[in-house]
Design a protein around this nucleic acid. Structure first.
Ligand code: SF4
Ligand code: SF4
Lengths: 133, 133
DNA sequence: GGAACTCGGACTAAAACGGTCCTATTTATG
DNA sequence: CATAAATAGGACCGTTTTAGTCCGAGTTCC
């Protein structure tokens, strides 16, 4: 239940690969190296690019490179890029999202959970891509 | 994606309620107070009882009481009781579970993720039920 | 022009989630 | 002793999420 999705895992693997590479890295290169579905990792890469974490180079011999230093990209950045920023919350009522919980008024644990969520974010924010190369 | 399930939320609400109550608390009492499905909270309570976090008293005027001091029950205990101990992991390859990942051999991020998981557990372990009453 | 890329939407099978329902058992109480 | 109020627990079910595929289109190098 606290498991992160495969897409995020693939995203982290890809980020690590790109960060460690000298030149541009293509989706095929990554999917081959780690035995992941090409289509899947390609989509993840597209999301990472759209979020501005990596820059794409289209056409032949194209691929991706980091958009900024690996030390300036946190795990939170990667997660948000792939899952959407709203997913950053441990419970939906604490994310700035629309749908609030039907229990909201009666809920006695949202404040404590807020504290937990803060601590969790601390963990993901302090861990940078540069630390996993 | 890091969201905890409704069952866990209900479990935490129930634990808080029981910890704050003077006498035994029945499932109906809790489901009424917080406007949750009776059947659902009842099942959660059964799991908590089975895990030894609360003790049940059957029959009329029955219900649940804490099995030990609220300060000795961590959030991890509650999560594990409801979701099963195997769910404690951020990725399945790091839990002592059976099914390992197909990528396992090629995966370059399992060690870093192990460190993250450790930090996460720290958060859930140090937070006790007594802190949410 | 073609090969090797990125881009991006549509689609799907399978699993997880959230929840209901039904039955059996236990126990206090009148 | 009968009954009502509880726990115990399995079966079931509709919806959503996940993980993944497939296909068409645009881009750039050779
Ligand atoms: S209100 Fe309480 S139950 Fe509803 S989402 Fe927030 S924390 Fe979870
Ligand atoms: S091996 Fe890597 S990809 Fe597979 S589960 Fe463990 S961390 Fe995730």
């Amino acid at each position: 239940m606290l498991k992160l999705s495969k897409k995020v895992e693939y995203g982290l693997i890809a980020m690590r690969h790109i960060a460690a590479a000298q030149s541009v890295s293509s989706a095929k290169e990554i999917s081959d190296r780690y035995a992941i579905s090409h289509d899947l990792v390609a989509k993840v890469l597209q999301k990472l690019a759209k979020a501005g974490l990596i820059v794409s180079q289209q056409g032949m011999n194209g691929g991706y490179t980091l958009a900024r230093r690996a030390a300036d990209i946190s795990i939170t950045n990667v997660i948000d890029a792939i899952e959407g920023a709203a997913s950053a919350g441990i419970v939906q009522c604490l994310t700035a999202d629309d749908g609030i919980c039907s229990i909201y008024d009666n809920c006695t644990i949202k404040n404590p959970l807020g504290k937990i969520q803060h601590n969790l974010h601390q963990v993901f924010n302090t861990m940078k891509v540069s630390e996993i190369v």
